[in-house]
Design a protein around this nucleic acid. Structure first.
Lengths: 223, 223
DNA sequence: CCAAAAGTGTTATTGATACACCCATGC
DNA sequence: GCATGGGTGTATCAATAACACTTTTGG
């Protein structure tokens, strides 16, 4: 870094935007906020906020997450930093985008809440978005899809314990392709990342399923 | 993004830092600048500069590259944005780090130049670095090594035309492992990304080598 | 007893790895 | 003629992909 002027008033604004994913029903969904003020009043957008003096980028992202969903300590990953000169018509703003994964069941009021101006949208049927948020969303979806293929990242979308068929459903929904049950189970169990809980799920008129949990609560690259 | 205050003087400074790699001899090297002023005066650091009002992040990175090496239009990729609160003792600064690849032969005065306060260092023997630049460098090296494995990214380190043995050397130096010549050639030619130039290199007391070029001048994922 | 999801192995195909000799040139 | 790097093919092994039936439960 150079020692050019440390004049803060010359500096752009810095925000943190959060692409929050969940899976509910049979769709990958993203959390959006309806804007109240101009520009783009009434338009949907990705939730975000300004970086504060005494917090790191990661802390800002966790704070925004907490403010919007009431949930903390979830999986967050820095995605990309967007800095087109005219991306905000009011002022020069650069935004550090993060993406987050959260199990549908862990959300405070699953489905019913409909807090004020927040909404969950299937990523394939999202409305028009403010600013360059369409681009940010697309970037996040691409990254999630890619990363699902070579990591255990989907653990962030599942509750503490789950059936192998739940896990398979996550992969199928995220990557939008059907998988073979036997090969899938073989491969997953071979990773050594899963552990039987000993408990069995019982819901529905069929044979009960063994419940599993992830041994590591962090992203690991497979193979 | 929220509509909280657009007060620029509350905002952190934004810089762009550039981890510039090249391969020379048998080592992966990085470009460093020796700092003149405090803090960390005399200490080596990653080159960078403040983001200007009328340039995007990418443009700023290309400008810094031009300023430091005299080279433009090279492969640049955004790496990560670093924002620890105390990463700069003077003021709150967040930095968007990029990494760049450049063929040793394309540098203005290969080796001899030694422009002022610039130097090339083997990444495995880099000196202590200012600020959090050690962390940034490590992040860049990890990314380059990983990406070499599943993309054609090394094209950025080679001149327009090159021998297959040059290409193999790049992989071996970057990933620090020896590769089998026949398997390597088979795999590379199978990607369909290489094209014979028709010309042959002639340098040295041995059979001349066919020169190849990359068909695509962009990063492509393999397999 | 019927519907619905759980659970379980084998074979075929494909891709990855290991490995050694002859060739063209400059000196 | 010898030293130097260029160029080539095959056999083995490992990973992946394709594929169908039996089990346990609730109603």
């Amino acid at each position: 870094m150079n020692d050019t002027k440390y004049v803060a008033y010359e500096q752009p604004g810095v925000t943190v935007d959060l692409v929050v994913f969940t899976v509910s029903g049979d769709a990958l969904k993203v959390l959006l906020v309806q804007r109240a003020a101009e520009p783009f009043a009434g338009c949907w957008s990705i939730p975000g906020g300004f970086l504060r003096k005494n917090e790191s980028l990661e802390e800002a992202a966790q704070r925004v997450m907490q403010e919007k969903t009431g949930v903390s300590q979830i999986y967050l990953e820095q995605l990309y930093t967007f800095g087109r000169v005219d991306r905000d018509p009011r002022a020069r703003i650069i935004t550090v985008a993060y993406f987050a994964l959260i199990p549908w069941k862990n959300l405070p009021h699953p489905g019913s809440k409909k807090v004020a101006d927040l909404g969950w949208f299937a990523v394939d049927h999202a409305p028009d978005l403010a600013f360059d948020h369409r681009e940010i969303l697309q970037y996040a979806v691409d990254r999630l899809r890619a990363k699902a293929g070579y990591s255990n990242i989907v653990y962030g979308l599942l509750p503490e314990s789950f059936r192998l068929s739940d896990l398979q459903r996550m992969y199928e929904i995220i990557c939008a392709e059907k998988l073979d049950k036997r090969n899938f189970r073989k491969r997953m169990l071979a990773t050594g990342l899963l552990q039987e809980t000993g408990k069995k799920d019982q819901a529905g008129a069929h044979r009960p399923a063994m419940l599993y949990r992830f041994i590591k609560k962090e992203v690991v690259f497979l193979d």
